[in-house]
Design a protein around this nucleic acid. Structure first.
Lengths: 149, 149
DNA sequence: GCATACAGCTTGCGTATGCAAGCTTATTGA
DNA sequence: TCAATAAGCTTGCATACGCAAGCTGTATGC
């Protein structure tokens, strides 16, 4: 039955992600003092036009609430990874902008991320399989504003 | 380069899981008063021998800390989904055991989970693709005690 | 052009979670 | 045998998060 297939795939997807996140999380905290979510926030900014986004947009793309963005950005601004920018057109908007320090930090973090992702796959995957997985998962994220790839 | 492929696959995996979890989470809270994590806890118990597991085992399989298990189990025990059982052999062990109420609740929750997982895939996937994805992800979880499938 | 509705952001409060310390019970080593 | 170590569990503390309310600024209807 299709329902059974859907459930198994979804379970495996969530479990695989949990394991991967757990693996990356440890390395991130130790090496960069970053959380995985902070890494994703930087990734979204890097990909955005002018390297900046309104808080509401970040919230949608990261599947978290607006208040979470507010509270995440505070410390990141304090340590100089991002800046707060106001909009001339709409005084309600408070952009989060990636600055040079943030870009550099992000490049380092990407290496750590790739390395640990590599460990997770190398164990038992052929590179072709990773490629197929990547293509399949692309449909899950393709067309969504959240998509980072 | 392989590193790039690993990173993209890992990013997509995490993002897909975030979206899927977000989707299921809303339905779960509304329909069953369960969180996704509580659902997974019940799933692990169902799959275990005698439908029960020590707290430490649950923690490992769910990629959470032991204290999280302690605090999750309290309310679930109060509403009658699981029981606490001591071990005759080792008085340190406090098994979490799935009871009849919990089993019934789990069956209902599985339907909700499968339905919402289905929505997530049906949109743009052929069933054959889901099958391939499922097989690929199987390698991520195969052989791990955490594997539910 | 003004009142009403709405959008973006922040804050108060409750919940969830990890870490480290502490408690109880098993195991190990001499 | 018993002292030292380790395992399983719980609890105090700090952090992360969502929801709902509130605040400020924009858009809409008349």
């Amino acid at each position: 039955m299709n329902d059974e297939m859907y459930m198994i795939s979804a379970l495996r997807l969530l479990q695989s992600a949990d394991e991967l996140r757990d693996r990356v999380s440890g390395a991130f905290a130790a090496v960069h003092g970053l959380s995985v979510n902070e890494f994703f926030l930087l990734m979204h900014l890097e990909r955005a036009a002018d390297n900046r986004l309104p808080r509401v947009e970040l919230a949608k793309r990261m599947y978290v609430s607006a208040s979470t963005i507010t509270r995440m950005v505070g410390p990141m601004q304090k340590i100089g990874l991002v800046d707060r920018e106001s909009s001339a057109r709409d005084a309600r908007l408070a952009f989060v902008a990636l600055n040079e320090t943030g870009k550099n930090k992000l490049q380092e973090a990407k290496l750590t991320f790739a390395k640990n992702a590599g460990y997770a796959f190398e164990d038992r995957w052929q590179i072709d399989d990773v490629s197929i997985l990547s293509e399949l998962l692309h449909r899950f994220v393709a067309g969504r504003i959240a998509n980072l790839t």
